[in-house]
Design a protein around this nucleic acid. Structure first.
Length: 557
RNA sequence: GGCCCCAUCGUCUAGUCAGGUCCAGGACACCAGGUUUUCAUCCUGGGAACAGGGGUUCGAAUCCCCUUGGGGUCACCA
């Protein structure tokens, strides 16, 4: 039997890490068994689905290195004999099965209004009972159903759940039996004519010849519904494996809310009283929306707005979606490795592996039953390790591609040689592809944008010692000015000679004042590289301004 | 709350299915030293868990029961 797995996202929102892990497991399971991976878009909720989201999912899967054999066509992948792969295009297929169920008395029309159902649900909740549909529609006579249908009254179709307990068989969690009455007569076609998830998924899995369904644990109980539906329709049953969820370190669910939460906290802490404005001067968020968002934790900003505000305020939002990790400079193979490790292990203390290895070794036996908490620190450590193992050439190329997409100001400001120097100087100290840029923004600032605050390390570097750092800075300026070649090697030679003569060979005495002068703070790549990247003109100009500012401070104190 | 599932260091996990080789191993994080022109990296060392209680057994992290804790679900969302 050919192994066929499927990844079936609903195209609302973005691909988050949990979904990515599911996709990765589906991919690995199929690849390791010479099987196929089907990508199916579950867009039966017309209000929430969008083409942009579908495209986004495919882009993210591509980036992760998860390719699909059947599904929407993108690049050279997709297509297949079991399409269409968008559920919204499969309505005639569902209709056929629906008619059969009704004809056989296994499904029926129901006319309950949402309001009526809501009221019953509330009553159930009040009575501390699980809500179950009361089969009110079953009391209707055939004639009455006909008449109401003919009158165009809105209705849904419900599945008539057979009596008796249902045993779910799952390769990860084992068997579980739901007592009789646990599953009620659930809706299989909505009033708008679209099938519900349960109905579409069962038919599509069968028609697409899916042999193994690996999906999130939130679907575990749904499996009972799917099984009785398969029985009623006479469809084959795939093997199921339910995957535990991925949580934040604090145990909360990972979701976009986390971004709202972080931004809201930052805004409150800094006392920002109005939304920042865009380049045209109009606020990114209208005043009233802004204040309700600030005051009400249940209110969320849309993702684009949220990110624009965060960017304007220089707040870094937690990564939730695959795209976030990409922008933060994580490597796709590292993300995959780490994701695979959250819920599966290779055994024998083996932690580092690539997708190839995963495909060859992934199995359901070693899938963890417990939910995992997502530890960004460990991911970061993995990313660092991967970067340190890269050749300088590879790192440079990846960093350049990253900068072209997310840090264009560095591409614009630095010439090829300077960019290369930055990469070489940053590789072994960078945990992400973004770090050479995020921590070195002073490299692309204009010279007069540099500001100095007299923090403790600055005070120590500038005003302590004999002579003081400030004095040394003044002395080294002409040395740098008179350098014919301003490359890292020449700078190093000059500074080393200077240090031998004026600072007892102690490089730190001058490196720190120089670093502060050109960057505004005590942190930068190695000082020779930093100066070479900036170029002579910028270095001299920044030293001059620094000398002026610091002398004033020294005089005042 | 009903129903279902799960339970090893702070976190991800190895070991559990076939009980002894485990006074529980690895990784990240943490702590203490060291290297280093800052930051970061790097090196050395350290603390850190079988949720609790009952059984079964010569012997239990491993099997059984209870308690506790955690998760899922209870939509015309998927």
């Amino acid at each position: 039997m050919t192994v066929v797995t499927r990844f079936a996202p609903s195209p609302s929102g973005n691909l988050h890490v949990g979904g990515a892990r599911t996709a990765l497991y589906c991919w690995a399971f199929a690849r390791g068994r010479s099987g196929r991976l089907v990508l199916r878009i579950e867009d039966t909720d017309r209000k929430r689905s969008s083409d942009a989201a579908s495209l986004g999912f495919m882009t993210d899967l591509d980036w992760l290195g998860i390719d699909w054999d059947e599904g929407p066509v993108q690049g050279d992948q997709g297509g297949g004999d079991h399409g269409p792969y968008f559920q919204s295009e499969r309505l005639p297929i569902y209709a056929e099965h629906l008619e059969r169920l009704i004809a056989e008395g296994k499904a029926y029309h129901a006319f309950d209004t949402p309001e009526e159902l809501d009221a019953k649900r509330k009553a159930a909740r009040l009575a501390k009972e699980a809500y179950r549909y009361d089969r009110a529609a079953l009391a209707l006579s055939a004639e009455e159903v006909e008449a109401r249908l003919a009158a165009g009254e809105p209705s849904v179709i419900r599945f008539r759940t057979p009596d008796g307990p249902i045993t779910i068989v799952d390769e990860v969690l084992g068997e579980a039996t739901l007592p009789a009455g646990e599953v009620d007569d659930f809706v299989i076609r909505k009033a708008d004519g679209y099938p519900t998830y349960h109905f579409a998924v069962v038919i599509d899995d069968a028609m697409m010849e899916v042999s193994h369904v690996l999906r999130a644990q939130e679907h575990f109980n749904n499996t009972a519904k799917h099984m009785i539906l398969q029985d009623a329709l006479g469809l084959p049953r795939p093997v199921y494996g339910h995957l535990s969820l991925i949580f934040n370190p604090d145990g909360s669910k990972m979701s976009k809310r986390d971004k709202d939460k972080v931004l809201r906290a930052a805004v409150k802490e800094r006392g920002v009283d109005a939304a920042p404005a865009d380049s045209h001067g109009t606020p990114l968020v209208e005043a009233d929306v802004w204040s309700t968002w600030l005051g009400d934790k249940s209110v969320q900003l849309d993702l684009d707005t949220l990110e624009q505000v965060a960017a304007a305020l220089e707040v870094s939002l937690p990564e939730i979606n695959v795209a976030d990790f990409r922008r933060s400079g994580y490597l796709p193979e590292v993300l995959c490795n780490f994701l695979a490790l959250n819920g599966w292990s290779a055994g024998d203390d083996l932690e580092k592996f690539d997708n190839d290895f995963l495909a060859k070794n992934f199995n359901l036996d070693r899938v963890q039953k417990t939910p995992a908490k997502f530890d960004r620190d460990k991911l970061l450590a993995f990313n660092l390790d991967a970067i340190q193992e890269m050749s300088p050439d590879v790192f440079h190329d990846l960093a350049r591609a990253h900068a072209s997409e997310f840090r264009p100001e560095f591409i614009a400001r630095l010439d090829g040689g300077q960019f290369r120097t930055l990469c070489d100087a940053s590789r072994e100290r960078s945990k992400t592809l973004d770090e050479p840029f995020s921590v070195n923004r002073f490299l692309v600032s204009s010279d007069d944008e540099i500001e100095w605050t007299v923090s403790k390390p600055v005070r120590k570097a500038m005003f302590k010692g004999e002579p003081t750092g400030l004095e040394l800075l003044g002395q080294i300026r002409p040395v740098l000015e008179n350098l014919p070649d301003f490359d890292a090697t020449s700078i190093e030679a000059a500074i080393t000679a200077f240090v031998d003569e004026h600072a007892e060979g102690n490089l730190g005495r001058i490196a720190q004042p120089l670093r502060i002068a050109v960057s505004g703070g005590p942190i930068s790549p190695p000082i020779f590289d930093t100066l070479a990247i900036l170029g002579q003109e910028a270095v001299l100009s920044r030293i001059d301004r620094c000398l002026a500012v610091m002398s004033e401070i020294a005089a005042a104190s």
